[in-house]
Computed example of a mutant assay.
Amino acid sequence: MALNPTAEALLAAVHASPRAVAAHDKSTWVALFTADAEVNDPVGARPHVGRAAIERFWDTFIGPNGIAFDVDRDLVGGRAVVRDLYIETTMSTGATVRVPMHLRYDLAEVDGAWKIVRLAAHWEFAAMVTQLMLRTGVRGLTAAVKLGPQLIANQGVGGMFGMLRAVRSVGRTGKKAVTQLFSAAAATDIGRVRALLDDSTALQLPAGSTVSAEEFTNRTRNMRWDKLIAAGRTVSVSVELEGARGVAFVDFATGGHRIDAVTVFLDETA
Rank of each mutant, 00 (worst) to 15 (best):
D251H: 09
V239F: 03
L107I: 04
S209E: 12
R135I: 01
G66R: 13
G158Q: 10
V71H: 03
D59Q: 13
L181Q: 07
E55A: 07
A37T: 07
A244H: 13
A95C: 10
K26P: 00
P149R: 02
T263D: 13
T234W: 01
N65S: 08
E109G: 00
E124I: 02
D111M: 09
T6H: 05
P47D: 10
D199T: 13
G208Q: 11
L132I: 01
V117H: 04
S212R: 01
L3D: 09
F61E: 05
R168E: 08
P206T: 03
L11W: 02
V14T: 10
V138K: 14
G174E: 04
F182K: 03
D84C: 07
G63D: 10
V81N: 03
R258Q: 13
A166S: 12
R98N: 14
V239T: 13
V49D: 06
D36M: 05
D251Y: 02
A213G: 04
V97D: 00
K26S: 10
G232L: 03
H122K: 02
D25L: 07
A53T: 02
A253Y: 02
V193C: 08
D74F: 15
F265L: 10
R98F: 03
D226H: 14
S27N: 09
M1A: 13
H102M: 08
R135A: 12
P149Y: 09
M128A: 10
P206C: 10
V167C: 07
Q150M: 09
L196A: 10
V178N: 11
A13R: 00
M128H: 02
V14S: 06
V43H: 08
G137K: 00
R79A: 14
W123E: 06
K227I: 00
Y105L: 09
V157Q: 09
V264I: 15
R165K: 15
R98G: 08
